[in-house]
């Protein structure tokens, strides 16, 4: 009798934890995907490109440098840059809200935006 009651407890707790983890996974996979990338050059807004549209643009950085931004399959990458270190080129593709690629020599910052819920909170 007592053992069967305890069983109910275990199933209940396991069920709630499973629902929580599932919900977390679903939210992470679906909702956190960004909708666009915002590009700033030297701290000033440069342009915004939707992640849903495949494009390739050359972004004019400071001192005549440039970065080539490619958007494909909902992800953004920097494929080429006129800088000696190439850190931004080696950075993996970004797609989730808040992810960022930085090209310091050109002062170019590419940030994924449009993820719901992360901002606009109290």
């Amino acid at each position: 009798m007592k053992a069967s009651r305890k069983n109910g407890d275990v199933w209940l707790i396991a069920g709630v934890v499973a629902v929580a983890l599932l919900l977390f996974a679903v939210l992470w996979l679906l909702a956190e995907r960004g909708t666009a990338v915002a590009v700033t050059v030297d701290g000033k807004p440069y342009a915004t490109y939707p992640l849903s549209q495949n494009t390739e643009v050359k972004i004019a950085g400071v001192d005549g440098g440039s970065c080539t931004l490619v958007i494909a399959d909902g992800q953004a990458t920097v494929v080429a840059a006129t800088c000696p270190d190439g850190i931004c080129v080696r950075h993996r593709a970004v797609s989730r809200g808040g992810e960022t690629i930085v090209c310091l020599p050109n002062r170019v910052v590419v940030t994924v935006v449009g993820a719901p819920a992360v901002d606009g909170e109290v």
Binding site: I13, V16, V17, V19, A20, L23, L27, A31, A117, V118
Partner: peptide
Amino acid sequence: SVVWYAPVLLLTGT
């Protein structure tokens, strides 16, 4: 969008 808190609140509630 407060649904973002749901997983955490489920776990802390447990």
